[in-house]
Design a protein around this nucleic acid. Sequence first.
DNA 1: ACTCCTGGCGCC
DNA 2: AAAGGGCGCCAGGAGT
Length: 573
Amino acid sequence: MSGVTGGDGAEQDRGTSAVRWALAETREGRALVCPLDAGGAPAGPVCEESSAVAAVRARPGAGRWVWRATAGVYPRLLAAGVRVERAYDVEAAEGLLHGYEGHGGEPRSLPAAWARLHGLPVPDDPPPRVRDGDPQPSLFETGPTPLPDEADPLRALLEVHAAQTERAGRTAHPGRMRLLLAGESAAGLVAAEMSRAGVPWSAEAHRALLTELLGERYAGGGEPRRLAELAEEVSRAFGPGERVRPDLPADVVRAFGRAGIRLTSTRAWELRRVDHPAVEPLLRYKKLYRLYTARGWTWLRSWVRDGRFRAEYQPGGTATGRWTTNGGGALQIPKVVRRAVRAEPGWRLVVADAGQMEPRVLAAISRDPGLMEVAASGRDLYAVLSEHGFSGDREQAKLALLGAVYGQTSGDGLRHLAALRRRFPAAVGYVDAAARAGEEGRLVRTWLGRTCPPPGADGHTLDEEAGGDGTGGGTAAARARGRFTRNFVVQGSAADWAVVMLATLRQELVGMRAELVFFQHDEVIVHCPAEEAPAAAEAVRRAGARAGEVVFGATPVRFPFGVAVVECYADAA
DNA sequence: ACTCCTGGCGCC
DNA sequence: AAAGGGCGCCAGGAGT
């Protein structure tokens, strides 16, 4: 990758293995394949193979597979023991390109893309698959899906792909868009591989943790002992004869009302300001109740099999490009439960966390000289900020910066916002401009060109009743939209970085036994033999740095990973 | 019995 | 100290 300058033109196929192949599955599960030239046109005859697995297996030298959707075909390849080097996911690309063209939220399936291309009625995307609590079958049951042109399923794929190549070239920064499409496609491969691998999970440690915190379960079912005790304690605190169900907010609000305390909700932060003996056990109840319902014995039984927690990741599942998961809540593993994430014997977890993504990304996209200088250090950015004359300590510096990115409207962060604006005018100006664009109904884009959905497609309607709530500057909805677009450019550009980082890391790990088992916005976990851990840690660091250079071009901004090599996730910093 | 909505809180 | 951006998930309750 030497010679990469800036974000443009970074993604190019090289070498003899750079042959692209298109692959389309027929309704019967057979596969039609043909080689492609650089422009996406057929460069050889169409071959028919008995299956996608057979087609890919027969062409080990293929540099990139162009297919309808990685999620639809790759899990079956992996199940058959077949990995691919690179892919191009036409439906993922369609979502990004159609979004860039101002139509975020509209159908992105291949049939929809093909229909648009030919001016035909556009079919809706198939509804998301219902989850059944058991992730196992869904990974492998996803069968071949019909293409719009039944007579020649390859034709629609080739037409849409060729058109996409041309549309990417018409964007303001074609190199960036091509990098985004390649990165998103690579992310799809990573997601399928990671879903298959699963997070190493000790059910035994998990059960021990549950019993320790929640107590035993009663034989007849129902709440575990600690929850029952705390519920009893809460009731007692309201007085003799009082019965309060702490898991029912309305019940709790009524009980406090009888005690002369008016609550608007039972949120923890509101309860904490209340002086009443029921508050303390109630807060402890809520904490444990959350653990019980979200990560308790039921979760364990549904999601952990053979020592692994397998979630189904959906790259780009959110508007900003962040991933989501289909079930199991893999991206919300509570800190306390991380004790159950254990490397296999003789193996290690390389836990890597990219520190202070928001300010680093903001520095890179705004090119604010002062903020870039602060972000040029690999040290804790907020600490550097507070040492270098920012009016406040580390926490205040952090609050001010995050407040600027999130569009904070009140509170402590706001006090220091003025200082922030003086010191980093280009950075604050960048997010302010994004907010203004949102309020005025315009679209904003991430650094690589991921585009926010138009108003109305994201739950923010700009033209509902006028007047707002009197704070000026348009309706409440317009201001909400402004906060969304303000945040979008930063969070989404961080997601741009993340997919390229994943793509790079995946390549770095080729040839090692190490496996990528977890990804969460700005954090990755690699599971590897102990002796590979130093190399894996170095691979992660390189991937983070490389992604920063490739995505954002020549800036002094660094994207350092904090890396810990541990046997248990809970032991990582 | 089902779906849809809400409250609340887990993660970033 | 205050409560803002993105999500998923669960339980309960309302509506059908």
